[in-house]
Design a protein around this nucleic acid. Structure first.
Lengths: 151, 151
DNA sequence: GTGAATTTAATGTATATACATTTAAATACC
DNA sequence: GGTATTTAAATGTATATACATTAAATTCAC
């Protein structure tokens, strides 16, 4: 049930390709996260919470401060402090006051966090393939275009 | 200050291009809406509220029911009912009980809604060009890939 | 060294998203 | 025709986003 954007949102035409592209990116994003939510729901994690876990694991045990997590997050405007609080209440991360700078907080993934993440990871990877209806060379091309799109 | 995704989120590498693409789409979306918010802010409209106005204007005066608006929205999960309420309180749309089916509500754009929309439209179009750092043929290519990506 | 400026995280508030539930009206079924 | 089912919109609740403000600790400037 592939659909051109124009059919999907019942719009006759766009002013020009640039205007269509902005709408297309918004629409494709919605398509993606709607599917993603179903994947994360059974684990009681949101996509951004999963992403924070992934970021922490990438540190190989070394903790990250809240602001460093924020820097690495996909959505720069979201609130790392509150996401960390949510993950902590699920015992997936731990927060320790940084000894060299008491303003900062060292956040690291817990054993339980690793377990949940590893379990989810395989499914996420399969999902990412299944949700994208393109061949590998097209996917590479799309990545290049998106990387260059942003100024 | 163009950056490959890997630099932007300080991640060494991705498992494969499909996994990178999902993250790339999420990240590019965030880049886009962050910029968009600045554009809409002075008009006290959110991007989705703007989109609803645009949808209603596309009807050339004919009203749409709340569920038809929902169908045409970019985010199928968002709440058309509450967005319409917000727009009504700003007097940008009007709501009339549908005479043939009292469950339904006919929503249409007001004169004031037209004015705001027309004023914004030029800026939005300029913005859409300026935010995309690609040539027209690449933009067309990107649109085609996104349309095919979705199943 | 003391006060000003900056940095880090947390908090407050409004809006939006995600999804379940409710209410009312219309349609289907017997 | 009366009950059951379906449909449309609204509402409830939790989470997330966007952005301003606050509080505490650190750094800078003199």
């Amino acid at each position: 049930m592939m659909m051109r954007l124009e059919e999907a949102i019942k719009q006759k035409e766009f002013k020009d390709p640039y205007n269509k592209l902005v709408v297309n990116l918004l629409y494709t994003h919605s398509y993606l996260v709607t599917a993603q939510n179903g994947l994360f729901k059974p684990y009681d994690l949101s996509p951004e919470q999963y992403n924070v876990l992934r970021i922490l694991r990438g540190q190989n045990g070394k903790p990250l401060t809240v602001s460093s997590i924020q820097d690495r997050m996909l959505n720069k405007m979201s609130n790392a402090s509150r996401l960390v609080e949510k993950l902590k209440s699920k015992e997936l991360v731990q927060r320790v006051e940084c000894p060299t700078d008491r303003r900062q907080v060292d956040v690291s993934i817990t054993e339980k966090g690793y377990q949940v993440l590893n379990e989810l990871e395989k499914q996420v990877s399969e999902f990412n393939h299944s949700v994208i209806n393109l061949g590998e060379s097209e996917v590479i091309q799309l990545n290049e275009l998106l990387d260059r799109l942003r100024k």
